[in-house]
Computed example of a mutant assay.
Amino acid sequence: MTLQVIGLCRFSYPAIGGFQVDHDTIEERIAYLYSESRLEERFRLFEAVALPSLHAQTDSDFELIIVIGDQLPAHHVKRLEALISDIPQACIHAEPPRPQREVMKQILNAARRDFSQPCLQFRLDDDDAVAVDFVERLRKAAADCAVLTAQHKSVAFDWTKGYIAEYSADGIAATEIFRPFDVAALGMWVKGDCHLTIMNFAHNKINRFMPAVSFDEPRMFVRGHNESNDSRQKAVKGVQVTPLSFEDAKRFHKRFAIDIDHVQQIFKGS
């Protein structure tokens, strides 16, 4: 039986908890997340960055669950449906506001086709990209570590090098980073009949709770740097990015399926 691979992406889901930015009420959180200017940026990033990298996966045998709030305005739901119409692996799952970890764990476990069998899981933010061979390499890593997975309930697989990037009508500016156990390019093997999920753990602490295998090559992720990053709503250390050269842009496209012309077109007028 082929090992099932399940990805999870939260698209402005108004969870109770799970944000670095605090809100006094769920109504305030919904108003913040669903503001037209913020959603416009998220849609542009999702279309230009995350979805192309998923559409181009060399191993297309995976599932992607996009979690939205059940109060997301209908015109935004339709826009999201249109964006994923050519990605058969993707589906939209709407939920009312609920505690972050509880709801995500339930969604992932419900997505397992055969709970008695092991599976692989990953999570992806809507402004991030993974390399086009991420699913292929994640599956191979699990196969290569069969002796290890046979001894544990869960094992993490992490690719530590990638990029931070900013996107605009001018194109793409980026810098290489080393960032172990970040959200993007982090996967987890889960044994059969085990209720653990990748959402049980803070991504940067996952190696405290299970064996973790890290890979230094190749560059496997692009983390988005934008105005509506949750982490950037508070004081954080800045990251210097520089515009991609023509050759860098070609390598970016080959590795992550992010096209600079597409980025410029989407962000015109922003």
Rank of each mutant, 00 (worst) to 15 (best):
H93E: 13
R139T: 07
G69Q: 04
V77F: 10
L108E: 06
D114G: 02
E136R: 09
P96C: 00
Q151G: 06
H76I: 13
R79S: 08
N109H: 08
L72K: 04
R137Y: 00
V103Y: 02
V132I: 06
P96D: 00
T160P: 04
H93Q: 14
D126Q: 00
D114V: 09
D158T: 11
L138V: 09
K153E: 14
L83I: 09
Q100V: 09
V77R: 15
N109K: 12
D70Y: 06
D125M: 05
W159G: 07
V132C: 01
A74V: 12
D126M: 00
T149M: 01
C119V: 14
D125T: 09
V135T: 02
H152K: 09
A141R: 01
F122L: 00
F134L: 07
T160E: 08
P99H: 03
P118D: 02
D125A: 07
E166V: 15
Q100A: 14
W159C: 09
A131I: 02
L124I: 15
P96Y: 00
F115Q: 14
D127C: 04
E166Y: 10
Y163H: 11
A150N: 15
C91A: 15
P73N: 12
A141S: 04
R139P: 01
L83T: 11
R101V: 12
R101P: 03
T149S: 01
A146M: 10
L124D: 10
K161C: 12
H76P: 11
L108P: 02
D133G: 01
Q89S: 00
L120I: 10
H93W: 13
I84M: 08
L83M: 14
S85Y: 06
R139Q: 07
R98F: 08
Q121C: 06
L80R: 05
V130F: 01
Q106E: 11
A82K: 15
E102G: 07
A129Q: 01
R113G: 09
P73S: 11
I87T: 15
I92C: 02
H93K: 13
A142R: 04
S116L: 07
F134D: 06
A74H: 13
K153S: 15
Q151L: 02
R139V: 05
A143R: 04
Q151S: 06
R101L: 07
V147G: 09
S116T: 14
H152P: 06
A143E: 04
V135C: 00
F122N: 02
L120S: 07
C91I: 14
G171E: 12
D126I: 06
L120Q: 08
S168H: 06
P73I: 12
D128E: 05
V67P: 09
K105M: 13
T160W: 09
